[in-house]
Design a protein around this nucleic acid. Structure first.
Length: 833
RNA sequence: GCCGGGUUGGCGGAACGGCAUACGCAGUGGCCUCAAAAGCCACCGUCCGAAAGGAAUUGUGGGUUCGAAUCCCACACCCGGCACCA
């Protein structure tokens, strides 16, 4: 660090300072010995569960961690002050690719990297003064933990919620593994950025789609206490739509071709059909004559990446499948095409195309010269402007046959009329569809939870018996872990070859491992009973603590971890293991710590080392800076912050405790009333500010209290006044939520035994919240023209009389007629002339 | 394209529909000191004015209201989610 390396300055003379490093050393030791933050499961107190997304152990903690943990600690410590029994655990999400890649590089076992980093991070967290209950620490890569991840997988399988299927999956060619939909961002691997391709593979899935509606409904309940952006992202991701399934009879085929549409009202305008080119259905439908053309087209579709597919304004392509279908309302024979603009895994993988009312269908019809029938009347001039698909509202047209007519109806009425008719004919039905896909959980990598299933040539997929869990990973290291498209586990002959638990014959273990998001979908439950040996968690303990009252973490998990964890909780609820169906009652997303307007990154070289900041300014000053910077959700540009200023304030606050001249336990009610008013006002404000997560304002109020106390000591009642002690003790408590080291030091200087975390929170005296006199504002036409010092209890009539008698008010009215006077005693009078 | 969030001094940001700019950073002047650092005190958004004081001002334009940064409508810009999802 350069300039302001003032942390270790020993104070001299009047401007005394405390020595930051030695204060940190001193209190770390005290906290390690006394463990002030252990949660008592048996406590009769009301319980609160403060949870922060547990870290992945890659290297040491960085500025981002520093911010989340600082925010988290304010809440946890505040709840403890307010008399709650607080569960405040920490652990590590310790399976995953970085450890595996490091192991390949360094020719070692992934555990070496993983557990070394965990120790580094744990030491940093302790240094950072966080109020965690270390007795509950867990690592998802411990067999004691993943045993229960496997147990849960088997329970899900028992309920039909874990299954295997063959289908086109997202494949990351760099990491050599499949990815869940949620891990593909703009057609690229979320982790490494490589362009994702499609492969047909047999993989394990969780049937999260069974819970689509519940996941959506739950958002209604969470909306008031979860961030809008997360609620919004999950809603979009689940993507509920209402529409209909419509059956089209295909010439020469028993099975109808069923499509999903959100616009059944436009059925009369369906002039052709399109099947997803890569859907099995297309291969079944295609005529012999068209098969070569179809297969050539399919080949071209397969080689195109998702990136190409995402390109907008891409010309429509496709191939005639050589079969026809019958439009159920018009009886018209219409052609069936295959194209890549229809998705295989959404709806039924086939659509009815209504070019008059859908732009994509319009574009396709234009390329292939297909007819257009409008079924909604566009407004004046639509056709004259060149015409294209009309997606707006309006009366239905061209929509009648002998039995039914929706002509003239608006869209909603036409929809329900068509659905009713289809249902009466048995050729369609109203339905709800979701964008959400099932969760692909197999990964072809080593450092994860082995899937506890054995594949037997005679018995098929056989569960590993529960009493044989955990299925531990075989010892592999270095080059054994090199990605080769199949799991490294498959090559571990001794491990993979087993006897079938069912028939005893030779069989093979499933060699894939689970997505690490499975591990993190239930860890918050394990924290409630970390050593529990009879299940993943003790239901009684989990029910006592869950749901977590606050969950703090990055918004990047809006549709990943947060959706998966909700799904797991719902399943466990349905299994009767949990009372709550939602894991996190409230949520807080912190912003990023950036530098000079940009995200910190190695390539930009603008990274700020947390360690260096802590050495230069001390833990307290760094934490204070992060909290005081602004609202927790906002990004913090470290370049614009002043940790040196924070340290200056902390020294100033600490100095107060030296100047308190009254004894501990003195009757503070005899103290100076003016200072007491400030103290009680600030404490009362701090309560609502912390509860509404406006921590930066809480700090500002604390600064005001420090300023007022300084003034009282230097130029007011003096350090001997009991009100000064009361104020300084309040400062120590308020500060302890942000800057625990200096707070402990102050608390001790004030003559109290540690820890300040166990101090009794000040009881706010309502009488002291009432000001002695208030400033009443007099407005003329809403503009401030005068200020009056009045008694807070003044009557409306008195205040009005006082205001109208005021000289400057009389001048401002200037003889005009007073039409109306609004009085909001004791603070405001507005005169309307 | 659809959906969500935002826009307040030089900067980070405060503000139950009622004194806009709290608190802090940066800046200016002073005290202390041989001097500096630290500390302390004062000033510190814009325009007009020597000052007293006045005027306009919370992205832009409307509206509701005695009164709008705050509520409503439209627009601009910024950030985020979804996206050939039928």
């Amino acid at each position: 660090m350069s300039e302001q390396g003032t942390a270790g300055t020993e104070g001299t003379a009047d401007a005394a300072t405390y020595d930051v490093p030695s204060v940190e050393r001193k209190w770390q030791q005290v906290w390690a010995e006394t463990e002030p933050f252990r949660a008592d499961d048996e406590s009769p107190k009301e319980k609160r569960y403060a949870l922060t997304m547990f870290p992945y152990p890659s290297g040491d903690l960085h500025m981002g961690h520093a911010e989340v943990f600082a925010l988290h600690d304010v809440i946890a410590r505040y709840w403890r002050f307010r008399g709650f029994e607080v569960l405040n655990p920490m652990g590590w999400d310790s399976f995953g690719l970085p450890a595996e890649n490091a192991a390949i590089r360094n020719d070692e076992h992934p555990a070496t990297y993983t557990y070394a980093n965990i120790e580094t991070q744990a030491a940093s967290m302790k240094n950072y003064g966080l109020a965690f209950d270390w007795s509950r620490r867990l690592h998802t890569s411990d067999p004691d933990y993943y045993r229960w991840t496997q147990w849960l997988f088997l329970k899900f399988r028992e309920r039909g919620l874990a299954y295997r299927k063959n289908s086109p999956v997202n494949w990351c060619p760099n990491d050599q593994t499949v990815l869940a939909n949620e891990q593909v961002v703009d057609g690229a691997c979320e982790r490494c950025g490589a362009v994702v391709t499609k492969r047909d593979l047999t993989q394990w899935y969780f049937k999260i789609t069974d819970y689509a509606q519940e996941l959506l409904d739950g958002l209604e309940v969470l909306a008031p206490t979860w961030p809008d952006r997360v609620i919004n992202a999950q809603r979009n991701w689940i993507g509920r739509s209402e529409g209909a399934h419509v059956d089209f009879v295909v010439e020469g085929r028993e099975e109808p071709l069923t499509v999903y549409t959100t616009r059944p009202d436009t059925l009369f305008g369906a002039t052709f059909m399109v099947v997803a080119a890569d859907a099995a259905l297309a291969g079944e439908l295609v005529s012999d004559a068209q098969r070569p053309a179809y297969e050539a087209y399919l080949e071209s579709v397969r080689t195109a990446s998702d990136i190409d597919r995402l390109a907008t304004d891409r010309p429509k392509t496709g191939v005639d499948l050589g079969v026809t279908a019958t439009n159920p309302v018009t009886g018209t024979t219409i052609p069936v095409y295959a194209s890549d603009y229809v998705l295989a895994d959404y709806g039924t993988g086939a659509i009815m195309a209504v070019p008059g009312q859908d732009q994509r269908d319009w574009d396709f019809a234009a390329v292939f010269g297909l007819p257009v029938i409008r079924t909604v009347q566009p407004g004046e001039g639509w056709e004259a402007d060149g015409g294209e698909a009309f997606t707006g509202g309006g009366p239905a047209i061209n929509s009648a046959n002998e039995e039914i007519s929706v002509d003239g109806m608006e869209i909603p009425e036409a929809k329900s009329t068509v659905i009713t008719w289809l249902e009466s004919k048995g050729t369609g039905r109203g339905t709800v569809n979701f964008r959400l896909r099932d969760w692909l959980l197999s990964r072809q990598r080593y450092w994860g939870v082995p899937i506890p299933v054995i594949h037997c040539p005679t018995c098929g997929e056989v569960d590993v018996p529960l009493d044989q869990l955990p299925v531990e990973l075989p010892e592999l290291r270095g080059a054994d872990l090199k990605p080769k498209g199949t799991s490294p586990l498959a090559a571990a002959e001794d491990w993979v070859n087993v006897d079938c638990p069912s028939c005893g014959g030779p069989a093979k273990r499933d060699s894939d491992t689970m997505d690490t998001f499975v591990d993190s979908s239930w860890y918050f439950l394990r924290f409630t009973s970390p050593g529990y040996a009879d299940g993943p968690f003790d239901p009684a303990r989990a029910n006592a603590w869950m749901p977590a009252d606050i969950y703090i973490g990055g918004v990047e998990h809006a549709v990943l971890h947060l959706l998966y964890a909700r799904f797991f909780t719902m399943v466990l609820h349905d299994m009767g293991l949990l009372e709550t169906a939602e894991p996190f009652a409230a949520q807080l997303n912190q912003g990023f710590v950036i530098n000079q307007g940009k995200k910190m990154s190695k390539s930009l070289g603008n990274g700020v080392s947390l360690g260096e900041q802590l050495t230069a300014f001390g833990v307290d000053a760094v934490r204070l800076t992060l909290i005081f910077a602004g609202p927790p959700e906002d990004d913090i540009d470290w370049a614009e912050m002043s940790p040196a200023g924070s340290l200056k304030f902390l020294q100033r606050a600490w100095r107060l405790s030296n100047d308190v001249a009254s004894a501990a336990g003195v009757d503070v009610t005899t103290g100076d009333v003016a200072l007491r008013r400030v103290t009680h006002r600030v404490v009362a404000d701090a309560e609502t500010l912390v509860e509404s997560h406006r921590f930066n304002v809480m700090v500002a109020r604390t600064m005001e209290l420090v300023n007022a106390t300084r003034k009282a000591i230097d130029s007011g009642v003096g350090g001997g006044d009991p009100a000064v002690r009361e104020a300084t003790e309040a400062v120590a408590m308020l500060l302890s939520m942000v800057a625990p080291y200096v707070a402990e030091e102050m608390w001790e200087t004030l003559g109290h035994a540690p820890s300040v975390a166990h101090a009794a929170w000040p009881v706010v005296d309502p009488a002291l919240l009432v000001e002695e006199s208030v400033t009443a504002v007099v407005q003329i036409q809403g503009k401030v023209r005068a200020r009056l010092e009045v008694d807070p209890g003044i009557s409306a009539a008195d205040l009005e009389a006082l205001a109208l008698a005021d000289a400057s008010v009389v001048t401002a009215i200037a003889g005009r007629e007073v039409r109306k006077v609004i009085v909001r005693e004791p603070k405001l009078v507005n005169v309307v002339v």
